[in-house]
């Protein structure tokens, strides 16, 4: 499903959570939605899933507004970091409700995940630990098979092996059937290899949208003497630089081969680091 975001703004009293952002998500891909706390990620996902209204502008999904739109709501599944389910429901009832709601619901997958995460079907949501509740969220999100599945920091309290399992199954499901997965997390290093495209929000604005491989290909950290590095930087956009004892490391938009040819020490920049430098830089600017 095609997602068009047009001049989208959201204001909470004096706080501009989203400031006139526009972009498209054209194809079913795994998208990483990144940004610091308060960047507007959750607000965006709430509007996308039709849970709240924009103050200005709109999101169109296959040309339609998702708010109060039955056909679209059953195509979108948003799993948040908590409070996804009513506390007094039993696990099996949660599954039942969602299975009625989502036309593509995969009961076999739901059961396999319940078993994988050792969830008791007869437990009430309020008795689940944080990690268990997250596991239930992940189960619903994956089994919904919604053409647009959104995970907003879905694994609070979930241990590392369980998160790993989640990534594996998400990848398997995505391989079996492409769908749009929007993934927002602060544990970027763990999942960044799964992202096909990355979006970074900063203080309500979109500061980057790019394929992750193009990012890895076009951003480099170069080190050398201050003169050498400065010479390399002359015609480039610098993200960040630091120096120590006559040596300098600079993070720039540039090509690895070119930097190597100039005898500089060259490394790529993992997406997590890139996000950190970009959002630190833009803050003061």
């Amino acid at each position: 499903m095609k997602i068009e975001v047009r001049n989208l703004s959201k204001k909470y009293k004096d706080n501009h959570a989203l400031k006139n952002i526009s972009f498209n998500l054209e194809e079913p891909k795994i998208y990483g939605l990144l940004g610091r706390n308060g960047a507007g990620k959750t607000t965006f996902m709430d509007i996308l899933s039709g849970q709240i209204l924009a103050s200005d502008g709109q999101i169109l999904i296959d040309g339609e507004n998702p708010f109060d739109n039955q056909r679209l709501t059953e195509s979108i599944c948003l799993i948040k970091e908590g409070h996804n389910f009513r506390k007094d429901l039993k696990v099996k009832n949660v599954l039942k409700i969602y299975s009625f709601f989502y036309p593509n619901w995969d009961q076999d997958l739901a059961e396999a995940l319940i078993k994988e995460y050792n969830l008791n079907l007869n437990s009430k949501v309020k008795t689940l630990s944080k990690g268990m509740e997250s596991a239930l969220g992940i189960t619903v999100g994956l089994a919904s098979k919604a053409p647009i599945t959104i995970f907003d920091e879905p694994y609070i309290g979930l241990d590392a092996p369980s998160r790993k399992k989640f990534y594996e199954i998400m990848l398997e499901e995505y391989q079996a059937e492409k769908r749009t997965i929007i993934f927002s997390t602060h544990l970027i290093d763990e999942v960044s290899l799964l992202f096909e495209e990355v979006l970074i929000l900063q203080e309500g604005s979109l500061i980057l949208q790019e394929e992750s491989e193009i990012l890895r290909d076009n951003t480099v950290a170069v080190s050398g003497t201050i003169e050498e590095v400065e010479a390399f930087l002359s015609d480039k956009e610098v993200i960040e630089k630091k120096q120590l004892a006559g040596m300098m490391t600079a993070y720039v938009y540039g090509n690895m081969e070119e930097a190597k040819m100039q005898g500089l020490h060259v490394e790529g920049i993992p997406i997590q680091e890139l996000m950190i430098y970009l959002t630190e830089r833009k803050k003061g600017a």
Partner: peptide, 17 residues
Amino acid sequence: TNEFAAYYKINPATAAK
């Protein structure tokens, strides 16, 4: 592509490239 993606836990589009 799928075997690479599953082995390294990477996006299949990346392996395909």
